[in-house]
């Protein structure tokens, strides 16, 4: 292999942060098998903000689990290189025996942040998710939206290069959600993260994404892709965001009609 060839290979490898190749995922044994994903191929570029939309049950969470290596594909393969993957799950899944601070602290500890740096980091993360005064609370004392934000803080506490987020802001009010969008976008830009973000809200997708993929259900496949080139900073209320969201919505509906 010549030097230029090696470079070319490196560039190809670099040009994909996540490579999903012909992935099929089946659940259950023969007889009553569910095909959650069928022949899904997808490439996510480094520092891309990718949103995934699609009907409930079309395999979005399954896809994220596979990328995070929490489950193995039935067929095909997935490559994220040596990148560290962080996941924010659909349920907040906080550790109930730890306080809010303890949950974030554990994430920092497991990422190898030394003890004397952790207190400041925790404070900073709590401010990012607007929960500064809540550090001493237990998860069961929080509202659903607060728990989601603690989960976000805990996810951001990891030092990861790829961030998978599964409907992270589903139970937030509009104003808090706007703030979380800004923070997510800020951290994405600062840390050059690659984000795969699942949402049911087409407007949210248009607000955040560089690219949106629309998934089709039963079995889960990738339907169409949609690139969003609206300059940042964007806001939910922007006309361009609304227009893109409307287009996306139409696409979803067309797909629905085609499905029937």
């Amino acid at each position: 292999m010549t030097l230029s060839e090696a470079q070319a290979t490196a560039t190809i490898l670099q040009s994909a942060a996540i490579r999903v190749q012909n992935v099929t995922k089946r659940f259950g044994r023969d007889g009553q098998q569910t095909v959650a994903l069928r022949d899904v191929s997808l490439t996510v570029k480094p520092s891309e903000f990718l949103c995934v939309v699609g009907r409930s049950g079309c395999g979005k969470s399954t896809l994220l689990n596979l990328i995070a290596d929490l489950d193995r594909p039935s067929e095909g393969f997935i490559d994220v290189g040596a990148r560290k993957v962080g996941v924010m799950f659909q349920e907040a899944s906080l550790f109930p025996w730890l306080t809010v601070r303890g949950n974030i602290d554990l994430a920092l500890k497991l990422s190898g942040v030394p003890k004397d740096l952790r207190a400041d980091r925790i404070q900073e993360l709590l401010e990012t998710v607007q929960l500064s005064g809540m550090g001493a609370k237990r998860p069961h004392e929080l509202s659903g939206g607060m728990r989601q934000r603690v989960a976000l803080a805990r996810t951001l506490a990891q030092d990861c290069e790829i961030l998978l987020m599964d409907e992270p802001f589903a139970s937030l009010d509009a104003i808090t959600r706007d703030a979380m969008h800004e923070q997510t976008e800020r951290i994405w830009a600062e840390r050059h993260l690659t984000i795969v973000f699942v949402t049911h809200n087409v407007r949210e997708a248009a607000r955040l994404a560089n690219r949106v993929i629309v998934m089709k259900p039963a079995p889960g496949r990738i339907g169409s892709q949609f690139s969003i080139d609206i300059p940042r900073p964007r806001r939910m209320e922007d006309l361009s965001v609304a227009t893109s969201a409307a287009d996306l919505h139409e696409l979803l509906q067309e797909q629905e009609a085609g499905h029937e």
Partner: peptide, 25 residues
């Protein structure tokens, strides 16, 4: 299993999984 998955993603394995998740849970 969900909490174990969360811990795994956060980087817990082997002993640290036991210490930080299994025992308290």
């Amino acid at each position: 299993p969900q909490l174990q998955r969360v811990a795994q993603v956060l980087g817990a394995k082997g002993m640290s999984m036991y210490r930080h998740v299994m025992i308290p849970a």
